[in-house]
Amino acid sequence: MKEIILHGRGGQGAVLAAQALASAAVFEDKYAMAFPHFGAERRGAPVAAFARIAEGRILTKAHIYKPDYVIVLDPWLAGLVDVAKGMEGHEGTSGGVPMGSVKTDICQGLNKKGAAVLNTARPPDEVRLSLEVCVGTVDATTIALETLGHPATNSCMLGAFAKTTEEVSIGSIEKGIMDVFGERLGEGIAERNVKAAKLGFERTEVGMCSGGREFPAQKKWLPDVDELPPGCAIRSQDTEYGKLGPGSTVQNETGSWRTFHPIVDDEKCTYCMLCWFHCPDGCIGRVPDKESVSVDYFYCKGCGICSEVCPVDAITMVREVEG
């Protein structure tokens, strides 16, 4: 049996990709299952999906702890949550880690004979992880933008998975995408995703990454039955695990969710404050002496609403580059 964890962000289609992967395996007369993280998901927030492929019926209904493969749909994610550790990492917060810096270990739990399939513009030998493992890399965001017009990298990364692991053929991946994406999103969109998968397959470079990268251990608040306050009524407090209770969401660096970030042109801005009014995360600030606005990039999640509503096109959305 092979176990696969897909890490992505809400909106990148990790769950759909896991289902398409399971479907692809079934087209090869294998047995497969796919399941989501079973959590509340928000567009842009870190999510995980899971798949298992085996020759015969799979009995376990438990989570995956030691994946054979990890697929990382988002170029920044590996730096923000403990993607290889999977389940627990998903529920953690970034704790203010700067965007793009790899601080947690995607290789944790990874079977050494397995592989990591990463969305990155870097070739495998420029990737450094905690373990020296096989990696497949592809600039899936660029392919997704070319073929789909938005950064849903799921289908492309399935192509990369087929190339890196040879667990399923690209032909079966195409059938799996037509089956699952076709059902959900219609044939036209499924066909474009098949194209993204093919390009992903073609452009993936497979090699060994370097290892030895160190990652700080993440502490999580896990009170026992005597420490947990009755009724789970939690007061606002600073702890070694970060903030708890009311106000603790200030730690949620939603800025790490972006694929694009807004740039304000002070010259064009008329200071009408329409963007301030519409920003769902309250990230727009006034700059009175320039009669313009500023963006709080720690929280700005790159939704682009400000750019859409600006009546004078003073806000441009610019693609993030890997740090």
């Binding site: 959590g39 509340a40 627990e88 529920e91 999580k220 896990l222 009170p223 026992d224 039955v225 947990l228 009755p230 009724g231 789970c232 009524a233 939690i234 007061r235 606002s236 209770g245 009311p246 106000g247 603790s248």
Partner: peptide
Amino acid sequence: DPIASGIVTPREYRQEFAYQ
């Protein structure tokens, strides 16, 4: 002295809470 109460309890907490 605000508290967070009645919030969604992730799987890491619910079982201890039920035990209480």
